[in-house]
Simulated assay, not measured.
Amino acid sequence: MSGLKESLQTFHKIASSPKEQLKKYLAEDKKVVICAPVYTPEEIVHAIGMVPMGTWGADIEIKEAKTYFPAFICSVMQSVLELGIRGEFEGASAIIIPSLCDSLKCLGENWKSSVENIPFIPMVYPQNRKADFGKAFTKAGYERVIADLEKATGQSFDDAKLTASIAIYNEHNAIMRQLSDCLNDYPNVTAADRNAIFQSAFYMEKSEHTALVKDLISELTKTEKTANNKIKIVTTGILVDAEDLLKILDENDMQIVADNVASESRQYHVDAKPAETGLDSLSCKFADMDNCSVLFNVDKAIAQYTVDLVSKYQANGVIFVMTKFCDPEEFDYVMIKKACEEKSIPLLLVEIDRQMTNYEQVRTAVETFKEILK
């Protein structure tokens, strides 16, 4: 048990200290590129020989970023900019920001005006991504990112190295999918523990994180399985990392058995398949991505996907964690709610914000939901 405890503590330490991770890599004389959500092409950064470090903002008070954003905009974007202005990313060689929603587009433009010492590199994705012309557009976007990275860092791109990086990322995808299923047999691993494992992946080189996850799975298999009396839930949304929210779930004996959360399992759904070049492989990977609020899908497959997760993992219900002022998520909630109602699946909507300090309403809602599910 001590080995399992130490392994989980490692993930918690890394997840709670991204700045320390940044300092660590800089001290090792490695160049770091900040990768804003979502679907930023980390494989390209890795292939050029740099460390891609993700960011989803932080639960902090927004001060300076208020100058650039209206109050009614996603707090994830506001807090990313706030961190940049405060110098939390000092030493990074660049930041890549995709343009998959209006808030992300605003973030990129505002970054250019407010954080002058860290170059902004845009990644423009098409919404019609599955057709050949969409894949060609995506590939052109990657080529633009490569040119900007080479200019900002002095490093050079090699497609053969990209193919090697893709293999590393595919291995990480596979181990994270394996982990998610494995955790279902160990209810002693809390929602907070589970989040720390996923969150820490953003702040590490993927090969390093893969090694840690393999060690964790090894420790889990040494642990005796116990009866699972927890309430099984599926989570969906953009971000489910609020410490108070996770604490409430744990206090109410709820176990996350599966998720379709943008900052968790959603990014590991699809591997990059072999293609003529590494860039072609990445372009096809993005075309294959789905079940996400910021990706266009005329059939809104995310609703059926959520229902299927409940069935596959025999969950008792769904908790939709809505990031306040996230328009794409608000549209999808209607579809997911309807799909759950048709299958008589209990659904709870919880709205959170990066600047929330009081979770008592959330606590009351979760406690009531628990009574419904019992």
Score class of each variant (00 low, 15 high):
residue 338 K to L: 14
residue 130 K to V: 06
residue 151 K to T: 13
residue 64 E to I: 12
residue 258 A to E: 15
residue 183 L to G: 01
residue 169 Y to C: 03
residue 242 A to Y: 04
residue 157 F to T: 04
residue 65 A to Y: 12
residue 105 K to Y: 04
residue 227 A to N: 15
residue 216 L to K: 01
residue 305 Y to D: 09
residue 110 N to I: 10
residue 96 I to A: 04
residue 194 R to S: 11
residue 32 V to G: 03
residue 152 A to I: 08
residue 48 I to R: 01
residue 110 N to R: 14
residue 20 E to H: 06
residue 299 D to I: 11
residue 244 D to I: 14
residue 79 S to C: 02
residue 289 M to S: 09
residue 302 I to M: 04
residue 63 K to G: 09
residue 140 A to L: 10
residue 228 N to H: 06
residue 159 D to V: 08
residue 339 A to H: 10
residue 120 F to W: 07
residue 150 E to N: 10
residue 72 F to L: 15
residue 99 S to M: 10
residue 234 V to D: 00
residue 215 D to E: 15
residue 53 M to H: 01
residue 262 A to W: 09
residue 232 K to C: 00
residue 205 E to M: 08
residue 235 T to K: 02
residue 311 S to V: 04
residue 61 E to C: 08
residue 266 R to V: 00
residue 264 E to Q: 15
residue 259 D to M: 11
residue 151 K to I: 09
residue 51 V to P: 03
residue 152 A to G: 01
residue 297 N to M: 07
residue 217 I to T: 02
residue 59 D to I: 12
residue 249 L to N: 07
residue 163 T to S: 14
residue 117 N to W: 07
residue 295 L to F: 05
residue 233 I to Y: 01
residue 171 E to N: 00
residue 288 D to R: 14
residue 250 D to R: 13
residue 182 C to P: 04
residue 174 A to C: 06
residue 225 K to H: 06
residue 154 G to E: 07
residue 151 K to W: 12
residue 127 Q to G: 10
residue 301 A to D: 15
residue 362 V to D: 01
residue 212 L to P: 01
residue 42 E to C: 08
residue 108 G to E: 03
residue 58 A to L: 12
residue 225 K to R: 10
residue 157 F to S: 01
residue 78 Q to I: 00
residue 221 T to I: 11
residue 292 C to Q: 08
residue 1 M to S: 11
residue 332 D to T: 06
residue 241 D to M: 11
residue 338 K to P: 12
residue 170 N to D: 05
residue 36 A to D: 12
residue 213 V to H: 00
residue 254 M to C: 08
residue 145 V to E: 03
residue 38 V to N: 08
residue 88 E to Y: 12
residue 131 A to D: 13
residue 353 D to L: 05
residue 98 P to M: 02
residue 173 N to S: 04
residue 316 N to L: 05
